[in-house]
Nucleic acid binder design. Structure first.
Lengths: 342, 342
DNA sequence: AATTAGCACTCGTTGAAGGTGAGTGCTAAC
DNA sequence: GTTAGCACTCACCTTCAACGAGTGCTAATT
């Protein structure tokens, strides 16, 4: 479809535009060493590329900028994976050493490091709680009126809530109920806890005193009654550094979306395996129409358990972003496998 | 020092400027019902107020804007505490019901609600860990190679870290060590844990097998080896909504500071009791020279344990910000007292 | 037939010039 | 002590012209 020369010109324009954020003119392209054609020739090809929708102009006599179709072609057919620097690779590897590790920290850290390395905003969506299984329940009394309930899952996720303890309930009551719950529920997937309690535990508890029931109610409220989608966002303010957000209104509306977990989480969830790149209007959300979102999934064993994503302007350093995200998600999946599979 | 009329004019200018962010002219002041003087009279007083440093101009024929000295005078002498709306008061109260409660959630929630109510950025600095005492240690094995160590304090703070377990160490070893630690260390202030271990526990552990020592090392690394300053920031992007940050460069530099816990925490720490208002250049940090920071401390019993602050432009709704922060910190202190003192 | 040189044309950007209006300071009158 | 009147200032807006980076088209060159 594209001649070799057209492809070269498209690539040069995209590469330059990614770097400078300025429209690219034919004369500047001709100056490059790897381009051996005159400005006029280049102009002809540019006109063709524009006709075919790969380029556009900001006004009738301006240089060209890539269109979304241009980026799409670039990403699908011409992008050479960037050789990451040794420093970068080493930094990524060092994040996954064998020392202390737990889900929250991994995700937080991932968001942080990737946003540092790319200067884009990083979004990490953690494992759905219901994919994981109960490892242990624990009650820690704080004082006469309050206690903390702690739930640990087999992925090392720790949930905790404190709650008020009515005076008629003794800590030993709580403890006994927790023992019963642990006995019956350890190993049960979090999502089935409710059903399991219904069928296996309720009867057992009802056999005992009313305090047991009350204790159970407390624990139930504290631990089983809330959904957790764990979303970590880092480098939100990097978006401000991009010239496409010099218009402060655009920055404001994008920030508003990123502040809202409800709006972000679904975008990250609807996701096939591997890397996915959504350019400009391929993003459903209107405020992201001048952004690119690259998502990668990570796995625990065979299960996809979460998503990690980079959000930047459509003028994104695709090669670098893709390479990094790929490297990271692979390392992460491998490490999770090592840590959480016996 | 100021005549009554001058004070009135100063107050009107500040009130109007807080609302509109525009320089205020004499004619507009004269139009107000509560001002019975002609523009010329007002102009004379404005000139005097400018001579005394309470007002300034953006250019020679512009209206007046408050100077930092003007705000300072306003805050110290003329600000009438705002009657908060019933909705607001009720909302604040409802946040401190007696149900499930724990430090992290309180702080997170405080930051969130206050930034919603004020539209400024809210910063909450949590209790220094070393002010609190150990309530319980716990180890939860995840699988053969990893376990999670959980530390609970008497303020309901929960720290947890997972760590790799070498093959030669059995979970029963870990458990025994934790038992010893709990026996000796419960009730000890977190800051003294190290010393206490040195003097009381090490000997005890050394009497047992080398696996005990290794187990202890693991736990030590996981739990006792990191400082926690818990800083919660909410509504950072609110700063973007303020017209004084239409200049995106200013917004960028302020964001950079707010992203860095190291730079923010000290500002919140150096703090006397009660409310403190730092206007413009009273803030040491240069990027905050056009901001006002209002900090309030909250207590647990007699001890100040943390700080809660609002950051906005110098043109801040002082009356509302102060009233809300005051109301909130009082409620918070009272609730903490109820929850964490027997 | 493909490439390139030449040239007229487009249009955003910059800066100067002039008009407008909200504001001031000063003086003189009330 | 207060106010009316008036000249003055200056940010802001609009208009206009010059500039230049870029284009498209045509004709010449390879």
């Amino acid at each position: 479809m594209l001649t070799e020369r057209q492809a070269l010109i498209l690539k040069v324009i995209i590469d330059e535009f990614i770097e400078t954020a300025q429209p690219i003119g034919s004369r500047n392209i001709a100056k490059r060493e790897d381009v051996a054609y005159s400005p006029a020739t280049i102009r002809n090809d540019m006109a063709d590329l524009e006709d075919d929708g790969f380029l556009s102009k900001t006004h009738s006599s301006s240089g060209r900028i890539p269109s979304e179709k241009g980026y799409r072609f670039y990403v699908d057919h011409m992008m050479s994976p960037l050789q990451l620097s040794n420093d970068e690779v080493r930094l990524v590897q060092s994040q996954f050493d064998d020392r202390m590790i737990e889900m929250e920290k991994v995700m937080q850290n991932s968001a942080h490091i990737l946003s540092e390395l790319t200067q884009y905003t990083t979004l990490v969506l953690g494992p759905e709680v219901y994919e994981t299984k109960l490892k242990q329940l624990q009650i820690v009394p704080i004082n006469k009126q309050s206690a903390i309930a702690i739930l640990v899952t087999d992925t090392g996720h720790v949930e905790h809530r404190s709650f008020a303890v009515p005076s008629e309930i003794d800590h030993s009551d709580l403890e006994k109920v927790v023992n019963i719950l642990n006995e019956k529920l350890v190993g049960v997937p979090i999502i089935y806890l409710d059903r399991m309690i219904e069928s296996e535990v309720i009867d057992l508890i009802n056999r005992y005193t009313s305090n047991f029931q009350k204790s159970y109610d407390l624990i139930q409220k504290a631990l089983f009654n809330h959904q957790t989608t764990s979303l970590y966002v880092s480098g939100k303010s990097n978006i401000l550094m991009q010239p496409e957000f010099n218009d402060i209104e655009k920055a404001r509306s994008l920030f508003n979306v990123m502040e809202s977990e409800d709006q972000i989480a679904p975008i990250l969830k609807t996701n096939q395996e591997g890397l996915k790149i959504s350019i400009g209007h391929e993003n459903e959300m209107e405020v992201m129409n001048n952004c690119t979102l690259i998502t990668a999934t990570y796995t625990l064993g065979e299960n996809q358990i979460g998503t990690i994503a980079l959000l930047g302007p459509t003028r994104m350093e695709y090669a670098k972003a893709v390479s990094l995200l790929d490297l990271w998600s692979n390392h992460m999946s491998q490490s999770l496998y090592r840590w959480f599979n016996d």
